[in-house]
Computed example of a mutant assay.
Amino acid sequence: MTTAKTTAQAHTHAPAHTPAPPRSPAVGTFRPRRTAPWQADPYTDALRTGRGPLFLRRSDGWLLPLEVERWCAEPDSADLTVLERCRGTVLDIGCGPGRLVAALASRGRPSLGIDISPAAVSHAVRAGGSALVRSVFDPLPREGGWHTALLMDGNIGIGGDPLALLSRLTGVVRTAGSLIVETASAGTDAELDERVRVRVDNGNGAPGEAFSWARVGARALIRHARATGWTPSEQWTAAGRRFVALERPG
């Protein structure tokens, strides 16, 4: 057995160690540049042109189409049913290119969009809305004071954990405030409750950093809402899209 003393002596008499210089990568080695989700091509390209194709790609090749053209257009008839239900100050979480915050601003409604994509936020501001580059899990303006929060276009999937997201929003929306959630489409199983790892993809395999996402049907959402202190108040469908309104009890 080596004692502490002999170990110390060995260290004392050992020659000084000179670190080897860093090795350069072998010639011809390709190191792909990783890009943060929603913050680089192909999402930025799609926002710039206002059209897809754009998908969320699962590791098994499954693709979920993203409706870039609708996101970059004026609010459609389904969006109008949401805007009509907004009360007081409105926070649009994952606002994308800002069609809803721009529409709210044009109506004189105090509203703010947040999104982790700088390109999306710039688009929203140019459209006439107010928006910040911010994650919903970061500190937010008017924390705990918003009358209405929106999770449109599947944004209940943010973070891949609907329970954590709904719990977080109890600290964002004021007492007696509301949360309007767009769930999986009307033609999808209302019990859908899926957690996946996905990448943003333009259909040609463009690289993007993998991230966690969730897809939730209406009945599954209501279960999660009740478990986190929300009370379901209304459900409706419009133009093939399904929405659930939740209230934070007083």
Rank of each mutant, 00 (worst) to 15 (best):
M1S: 13
T2P: 10
T2W: 11
A4S: 06
K5Q: 13
K5N: 13
T6S: 14
T7F: 11
A8W: 14
T12G: 02
H13D: 12
A14T: 10
P15E: 13
P15H: 09
A16T: 15
T18M: 02
V27S: 13
R31V: 15
R31E: 14
P32H: 09
R33D: 12
R34M: 12
A36F: 03
Q39C: 11
Y43C: 02
Y43R: 06
D45A: 15
A46P: 07
R48N: 10
P53F: 08
P53H: 09
L54F: 04
L54H: 11
F55D: 05
R57S: 14
S59H: 09
S59D: 13
L63A: 10
L64F: 09
P65H: 04
P65W: 07
V68W: 01
V68C: 02
R70I: 03
R70H: 12
W71F: 08
W71P: 00
A73H: 08
E74K: 12
E74P: 01
P75S: 02
P75Y: 02
D76T: 02
S77F: 00
L80K: 03
V82K: 05
V82C: 02
R87F: 02
G88Y: 00
G88T: 01
T89E: 11
V90D: 02
V90F: 02
V90A: 05
D92A: 03
G94K: 06
G94F: 04
G96V: 10
P97C: 03
R99D: 07
A102R: 09
A103S: 12
S106E: 15
R107G: 14
R109H: 07
S111W: 08
S111T: 07
D115H: 11
D115R: 09
H123D: 13
A124E: 08
V125F: 06
G129Y: 00
G129R: 06
A131H: 07
L132T: 05
R134N: 10
R134D: 04
S135P: 00
F137R: 01
P139Y: 04
R142G: 01
R142Q: 14
E143G: 08
W146K: 06
L150T: 01
D153E: 12
N155G: 04
N155A: 08
G157I: 10
G159D: 03
G160N: 04
G160C: 04
D161H: 13
P162T: 08
A164W: 10
R168N: 07
R168V: 03
R168L: 07
G171N: 09
G171R: 01
V173A: 06
I180M: 09
E182Y: 08
A184L: 14
A186E: 15
T188L: 06
E191W: 08
E191M: 13
D193F: 13
R195S: 15
D201H: 12
E209R: 12
F211E: 03
W213Q: 03
A214G: 08
R215Y: 14
R215E: 10
R219Q: 14
A220Q: 09
A225E: 05
A227D: 15
T228R: 12
W230P: 04
T231V: 10
T231R: 15
S233I: 13
T237P: 03
G240K: 10
R242V: 00
V244N: 07
A245W: 02
R248I: 11
